[in-house]
Simulated assay, not measured.
Amino acid sequence: MSDEIDVVGASVIVTGGGRGIGRAEALLLAQRGARVCVVDLGASVDGAAQTAEDPAVETVADILAAGGEAFAVRASVADPDGVARIVDETVSAFGGIDALICNAGNFAVHDFPAIDRATVQRFLDVHLFGSLELARAAWPHLERSAAPRIVNTVSSALWGVPGMVPYGSAKGAVLALTHNLAVVGEGSGILVNAIAPGAGTRMVDATGDALPPGFAETMKRTMPAELVAPVAAFLASRDCAFTGEVLAASGGGVSRLVTVRTPGIRDPHLTPEGVRDSIDAILDLDGAKVHETGARVPTGAGRLLSTGTTR
């Protein structure tokens, strides 16, 4: 397909749009003709302190200088009043909402078990509840869009990375949110997908010893945020015709991330010993199939792609 991805005139909210991946997403969408609400609290990378900087305003200034259309909102997605303001100001400025790109996040490395519930809650408030509440507030407006899209942001940390129990767990919750919103959105034509990005942003500097020596420098050199933004722009566009999917994007590489179910075993007289003795067969990936969630694209959207099987 040689036609350009169509986001012209689309009203898009990009959270965390002042820096890193979110900034690259906002700039690309505006360059392609979208009208962008750039949201950023201007906080420290761990979210613990608000800085004097207002990166959303800086991103918007660059968009306007290039002839695009955008405005800035300084707000936290963890604050219900902030979420309401993001939605209200976007509807007021652009007349509606066509897409959400939920990129805002906080990040830090923590020793386990030397963490407390409050620490984990801070990550859930931003990643899970920030994405959930923004989707909930924007949902009635998305239902009135001709091509409503939600793009959440997950991370490979949900599969386990040293020092990232709170962060990775929160991203795992966002993955589950994505699959469930995809099912809910089926009746309204709201397509909900996620991106699992890899980029050398300021979060890399906060990893400490969690990454192998030299890996942070390699990420900064070979994995710019600008190579993540095209995937988010596609998922937010009218050209995206599937729901409930996760696309990994880093350094120009793009792949599909899925959960699989192995053939396993079936024993009506199953015992603990039977599980032990058959564990190799249970874990064997030969013949594994993508686990289905029930999400389908709306009728007439082109091809039908579930989180399980292409049909």
Rank of each mutant, 00 (worst) to 15 (best):
A108Q: 07
N103F: 07
D116K: 08
M164E: 14
G300R: 06
I190T: 06
S156N: 14
N103T: 09
L283W: 12
L142E: 12
C102D: 15
A61P: 03
G308Y: 04
A70P: 03
V120H: 09
A173V: 03
E69A: 11
K171W: 07
D116W: 06
V204E: 11
L64C: 10
L142N: 01
K171Q: 11
W139E: 12
A146I: 06
P55D: 10
R202V: 09
V154S: 09
T153M: 14
D88V: 04
A114I: 11
I282T: 04
P162M: 12
H291C: 10
A93V: 04
V36G: 03
S306P: 09
A295W: 01
D209Y: 04
L227R: 12
G172K: 02
G300T: 00
H127L: 13
F215R: 03
V73M: 13
A49F: 15
L100M: 05
I195W: 00
D286P: 00
A249C: 06
G160H: 09
A182W: 00
T51W: 11
A72T: 07
T222M: 13
T262P: 04
S145R: 00
E143G: 05
G168L: 13
G33C: 05
H179Q: 15
R296W: 15
G17W: 01
L257P: 04
P162E: 12
V184A: 14
A61Q: 12
G95V: 06
P80N: 11
G251A: 10
S155A: 15
D81Y: 02
A206Y: 07
M1Y: 08
S156L: 14
A229W: 07
L128H: 10
A281N: 07
G20K: 02
D6F: 02
G274T: 05
V154A: 11
R117H: 12
A194L: 08
P230I: 05
